[in-house]
């Protein structure tokens, strides 16, 4: 039983690290503020969630409840911050790129 928990925690930890990496790679590669927000919001939220899940699987109940509350907290604040950033970009007149990108280059 303990071995299964350890293995599950390890998978969650590596998956979370992978998604954090992919989100930041998207931040470096994508061409526009809006497209960068796509990569960072989704991948960051899931990455933090998976890393905290692996810590929950390894710790006691009282700590696990607090970490779960922290996950809910991040799940609520992260998309809201992304929405506010996108709205500020839209209102300050940054035009989003449109159209199919591969045709151009």
């Amino acid at each position: 039983m303990s071995v299964i928990l350890d293995l599950l925690a390890l998978i969650c930890l590596l998956g979370g690290l992978f998604f954090l990496f992919v989100g930041t790679l998207g931040l470096l590669r994508l061409p526009d503020v809006y497209n960068r927000l796509h990569a960072t919001t989704k991948c960051d939220t899931l990455g933090v969630g998976l890393v905290l899940l692996s810590l929950i699987l390894q710790s006691s109940l009282a700590v696990g409840v607090r970490l779960a509350l922290l996950i809910i907290f991040i799940l609520a604040t992260n998309p809201t911050a992304a929405h506010v950033i996108a709205r500020a970009a839209f209102k300050s007149g940054i035009r989003p790129l449109t159209g199919r990108r591969n045709d151009r280059d």
Partner: peptide, 8 residues
């Protein structure tokens, strides 16, 4: 190849 086609 970064296959995106963004839009509103």
């Amino acid at each position: 190849r970064l296959p995106i086609s963004p839009g509103i």
